[in-house]
């Protein structure tokens, strides 16, 4: 029964997400129309002062001479068919370009989520269990500082210390391309490259979830149900782990869901710093190249990503909290 309802819940959420994703596409499409210059001028400019007729010819070929609304309509129609257009800059279909860059970003995001949520929950509980001890002070002070650190700067500092001075980790890239690692060796190589970018991107969120978790655990330990558990003769440890932890997880999970969009944004900076071949870097490059088809494609995909992660978060939430009914009758 519950499984069936859950599937229906997910389907409903997916349906509800479609207008949101299309809205993101429309908004960005219209915004990009305001941008100075288009692919034609950039290409022509690079060709070195091409004659205006040539620019017009390029425009006609790219369909840029049609009215904006017609362009938008065509674009939306194509998106529904999963055709994201053609990147004239890279001379390749957008979909292929994006999919190539998708998995490095997913890898980075997944590792970051794992480290920040997992680590944050753990550190938050440790701090709360030893409230006002040296462990708590250490964790809290570290969290306050990490919370104020600019991502790109800590990335550079990590490179300075761990790559340049100590030479423990590579400075950039996702793998050692010239080494032609295969199989297990390749996995190890990628993991080695992943360490610094993950730490960089995680640090802020790790601090955020640590602080949130600590505060919620402390708050929940003062809740009446915790007093009831105490009156039943449970140890403080059992109260925290068995009763408080699950209740305190809920706000952290909600927050993690809200933060997914921001996380994806942060990956632009981190990917630029570490030359990580992901979507963020691609977005940055395509923006300066005025490769708007590619940029729109990236926005479309990242909106999809955010929506999907949010649905996953909602499902986890529903599984954790019996008070949330999913489509059942009251």
């Amino acid at each position: 029964m519950r499984g069936l309802r859950l599937i229906r819940f997910i389907m409903t959420r997916l349906l509800q997400a479609i207008p949101v994703v299309l809205g993101v596409v429309v908004l960005n499409f219209l915004l990009l129309q305001l941008a100075p210059g288009d692919a034609a001028t950039v290409l022509a400019g690079e060709a070195g002062g091409a004659p205006p007729e040539y620019v017009e010819q390029l425009r006609a070929r790219f369909g840029l001479d049609k009215p904006v609304l017609v362009q938008l309509g065509l674009y939306l129609k194509n998106i529904l068919l999963l055709d994201l257009g053609f990147s004239f800059r890279n001379n390749a279909p957008v979909l292929g370009l994006i999919l190539d860059r998708l998995w490095p970003t997913l890898l980075l995001m997944g590792a970051t989520l794992l480290v920040s949520v997992g680590g944050g929950v753990m550190l938050g509980v440790i701090a709360a269990l030893g409230v006002r001890t040296w462990r708590d002070h250490l964790i809290s002070v570290a969290a306050v500082i990490a919370y104020a650190t600019p991502l790109f700067w800590i990335g550079l500092m990590l490179i300075l210390v761990f790559s340049i001075r100590l030479d423990w980790f590579p400075t950039s890239g996702m793998e050692d391309v010239v080494a032609f690692h295969e199989g297990w060796a390749r996995v190890v190589d990628i993991a080695h490259h992943l360490v610094l970018p993950t730490i960089t991107l995680s640090l802020f969120y790790l601090a955020l979830y640590t602080r949130l978790m600590r505060a919620t655990v402390l708050e929940q330990r003062g809740a009446e149900y915790a007093t009831t558990a105490r009156a039943k003769g449970l140890t403080e440890r059992a109260i925290t782990l068995r009763h408080v932890l699950r209740n305190a997880l809920l706000p952290v999970i909600t927050m993690a869901g809200v933060q997914v969009g921001a996380l994806l944004g942060g990956s632009v900076v981190v990917e630029t710093v570490f030359a990580w071949p992901g979507l963020g870097q691609l977005a940055y490059q395509s923006l300066f190249a005025r490769d708007f088809n590619l940029l729109l494609g990236i926005f479309f995909l990242s909106a999809c990503l955010v929506v999907i992660v949010n649905i996953i978060v909602d499902v986890v939430y529903v599984l954790l909290d019996p008070r949330i009914r999913v489509g059942g009758k009251t």
Partner: peptide, 18 residues
């Protein structure tokens, strides 16, 4: 819980909701 037990005022918040 073994020799002395307690009943609180607000049963809704005195029970763990999860």
């Amino acid at each position: 819980g073994g020799e002395i037990s307690m009943v609180f005022q607000e049963p809704m918040v005195s029970l763990n909701p999860l």
